[in-house]
Every structure is written in C-alpha cells, then in structure tokens.
Nucleic acid binder design. Sequence first.
DNA 1: ACATTATAAATA
DNA 2: ATTTATAATGTG
Length: 631
Amino acid sequence: MRPPALQQVAVVPLVPAWRLDRSFDYSVPVGIAESIEVGSVVRVRLGHRNVRGVVVAGSESPAPSSLEPVLAVIVTPAPARPPITDLLNWMARRYVAPRGAAFARAVPPRVRVKVRPPEPLAAAAAPARLLPAYRGGEELLAALRSGAGGAWSLQSAWAEDRGALIAELVAAASPRAALVAAPEVRHGSLLLEELARRWPEIERVDSSRSEGDRSRAWLRLAAGHGGGAGGRATVLAPAPDLGLIVIDDEHNPSYKEDRAPRFDARRVALQRAALQDAVCVLASASPSLDWFGPSGLRTVEPGHARRRAMRPVIELLEPAGERAFSHAFHERVAAALGRREKVGLLTPRRGYARTMWCASCRASLRCPVCEAGLAYDRAPQRVRCPRCDYQAPVPPRCPRCSATELRALGAGSERLAEQLARSFPRATVGRLDPDTLENSPSGELQPCDIYVSTWVGTKPELRPEVSVVGILDVDGLVRRPDFRAVENAYQALVAMAEWAGPASEGGRLLIETSEPTHHAIQGLMRADHGFFVERELAQRAELGYPPYSELVVVKASGPEASELADKAAAACRDAGAEVLGPIVRRPQGGPEERQLLAKCRLGADPVAEALRPLMLATPRDSRLWVDVDPR
DNA sequence: ACATTATAAATA
DNA sequence: ATTTATAATGTG
C-alpha cells in the first residue's frame, strides 16, 4: 500500500547563501502528489525566480492556500531520501556551510536522462585473501553478511592487491548495495578499473565521466542499484539499501573537499554508515592516526606471516653530510645497476623548507605564536613560521636545552640529479613528478635506469617498476613544520616500501637517516603499524592534537577582519576550544588575513555551532572562512 | 528632471 | 544567488 500523498512540503533551495539557510514551505498540486516524497528534487518559485530544491519534510494535511505550489518534480527516483537528509543536515552543521550548499552535493547533474532498471551486483567467489591472512577479517565479513553494520580500519599488507581485497568485501555485502571511493580518480584508478572488470554493471560516478553518465549512474543508484564507485563524492551517492561503504587509500589528502562544504569524505562515510546501519571500511596500508586513540575504530590488520611476506629488505644508512648521498648509498645503487635493476629515489621537494633542530636535545624550533615547527630560510638567514608567517633571526641557542649547536636539515634535489649524473655516467636518469606523470599515461613513461622523484605522491599505479628504492632525506620529512609531519613521513616510507615490493621479488629499501631509532623508522623496520601508532599517539596527546582533539581553522579577511577574528576566537573559546591566534597572515600575493586555530577537545561540533551565527552576521565586504577537520 | 549606477532587502 | 526596490550619483 502506498503511503498517503503529501499535500505540503518543506524545501531547502539549492542556493549556497547564508540568508537562505533554512527550508521554505510549498503546497503540492494534485498532479505531482504521486511522485513527490522527502528527498525529491523539485523546482519551486523563490522570490522572483525559479530554483531547484530538495524536499526535506512533508505533511499529509492540506496546505494553506497562501503557499506557492511546487512547480515540478525534476528527477525520479528521489536522490536524497532519509536518512540522507539527516546526513546532509549534519554535514552543513559540522562543516559550517549553508544548507543549500550541502544539499546540492547529493543531487545529480542537471541533465535529463533515461535510466536502466537497477540490478544487484553478481555474487563472486568466496573470500580467499582476507580470511586466512588478516586478523579481524572474520568479524568484518560476519558483519557484512549479517547486515549488522559498524566501522573498521582495514590495514592492508604492503604491496597487497587492495582491489582484490575490496572486491571480497563488496561481494560479501551483496545483495545490499556497496559504494567504493578511490582517491584522485581524475586520471584513472586501478581500483575502479579492477572493480569495473569484475562487475561491469557497477555504476561509475567519477568526475571523469560526462554529466549524462553521472546523472544516469546517480539515479540508477537511487532506484536501488547494487553498486557504485568513484571519487570522494561517492560518499554522497544514493543507495537506499546501503550495506558497505569503502574509502580506499584512506590516508590520502584528496578526501578533503576544498569547496564549501569542506567535508572530510572519510568522516562523512562513517556518519553515513552509522545512519544506514551499513559497514564502513577505511582501507590503507598506513591507516591515519585519526582512527586510533580515544575514538578508535575496530581494526583488521595483516597477520604476522603476511606482513613478513610482503616486506622488502630494509637498510638504514648514515646520511652523507655535505654530499647529496653517501658512499654506502652509491655502492647499493651501483650494485643494483650492475644487476640491471631499476632504481627509484625519493628526495623531498626542491626548495623544500628546511627545519632547524637542536643537535643535543633533538627538539625542532617551534613557533611561539602557533606552535608549528619553524622553517629555515637561507637567502636572508631567518626562521619563519609557515603557518602564520612569524619571522625572527635564527636564535643563538636552543630554547629548550640552551645548547648552541642548531642544525638545518634538508637536501637540495638539483644537486642530487647533478651528482647522480656524475656518479653513474652510463645510467639514464629520469624525473618522476606530478607533471611528468600527468603528461604521459602510465605506459608511455620513458624507461630509465634511475627515477628521481621529488614527490611522495600517491599513485602507485603510475610508478614504474623498480627493485631498489632509496629515500634520501627522511629526517627532512619527519622534521617538517606540521603536526602531521611524522605521520606523513611514515606514510611516505610505507608507500616507498610498497614501491620496492617484497624481498622475495628482490625488493630493497634504502633509507638515509640520522635517527634510526625514531618510531617512524622503527615502525617501518618491524612492519608494525601498531608500534608506530602507539608512540606517535603519545606525542599527539601531549600537544592536544588529533585524535585527542578536533581542529577548526578560521580565517577572516576584509576591512573588519580583525573584529571578525576576535569574535570567532571568543565563540570558539565559549564552545570549549583552546584557541591559538588569531595571527596575521599574508598569503602570497593576496591581501592580509587573520587566522586562528581552535583545538576542540570536546569535538568540533559545538565550535561549528558557535561559529554559525557569525557567518550570517558577516558584513558583505569582509569574509569569514571556516575549515573543520583541516588536512 | 530624469537616466545610470551602487546598495540593500527579500525570498514560502 | 538573484531579483527588485530604493538610494545615490551623474548629466543635460
């Protein structure tokens, strides 16, 4: 039996304006009562024009005749049915965005399409990869099959075929629907291609598809189709009977949306899974610290045997000092070239900000204003805060232990290329950076003997096959002025271990470091993520950074920037946050702005709530910019 | 006095 | 965001 028809509805207009941050009521003409429901995309009259909107509530009692009528239902089936409406409301509030901006993300592109009937994904073979080799895999599969729901961090073994692993999960979730998100899909993704090979009927919602394709996919999913895959927007794709939502390569920064609402797709996926009693899986070879500690997820991780089997031979070398690389390093590379093997070298980006650290107590210099680590400029010798542009002369002694020997860290990548060419005149040396890769699809990369990468980047599928990988300045990565520096350095190390491949296939990883006992290095050597996490969490706890708090960054610009920033700071403090700043910043080329960082030990939600009224009250010539869960 | 342009207000 | 009413500014 059909539920009684709606006679009046509340509609959120898809207009990203704070003045319109609410719903508007309309009457439902008899002609469209059949097709309208909560979650429908409709056209309504608003002010002096017609706009699209999403129905967020409805009533079966007759509407007062003073209400404007809904003009049309634009697409069927409804793409934002409950509980997606609740998810979007949550997203607008947590990420301090107008409701219209949030709801617009759940609506297909505006093209009229004809949609094929939905079908479940074909069941596949029983899981072979997850079960024997992974601890906690059984529990995860049981939750998928029973429909119990829950949230997991899935740590894959190094160089694991994660596509196959994820395919097993998708199969186990069937006949309930599965959504899979992959990072940086713009130039293709091995994972998405692998899934499409196994399930040709899976709907792709990537931005690489045409608007028509995307619209078709979106609506077929809304009709109950069994599976969808794409980039970070996939977490908002419709799926009335969602059983599984996967975020692959979860630690990848591209899961952070850069336009309002600036959501973190991983958090949205977790929230959504909870609302739909689905399983959320955050998959990565180096899971983010955010999912450990106080609000930890359940974990699936490779057993000891699997970890050992996938590990390359790892060798730690003393850094070369003044030269670009050491004698020992030279020997290893020469030996590899002698065996006709290929070599990959990672060195931090050219022009990389060096950091200053104390030779005796090993503390790096920190900014007195915002606690970020200080960078070291060489041209005029100064220390500079990359976060707030605080500047000062290099201090004569360590502020912590008063030792006088402060060292600058960081290797130059130009010198590296020079020296390589001199040391290995018969080898061809190629550069590997985002530009080179974007300009040539994976197959057409010039084959070289040595690849130099200045990029810790994340597209494993684009890395040429090598057997020896060298990392020249881990210390520089670790000391980078960012509270996530150590975590990111560790993630880079894991990515490089994956690039090298298992020892059984000749994989070797060389690491130049002056701190062999650092927990990032030790965690890697032991192939023990838990070891690393435990130690790094202690650091985070000490400074009150995530996961022991949630962060909110607020920037104010315009003539009233100063007053706005002060108000924002006060609002954050009232909501229980510890506020650093506001400090004055001048982004390169741009006008001056005030910025503050709120550490919210009670969570970001109350702070987001407190900032909301300020957005509405912002004068039109000034701007307030809020980023919750910054990356 | 009237056209042109900046500004504010409202949206069911 | 977009439209429209209203104020401000400019022009003959």
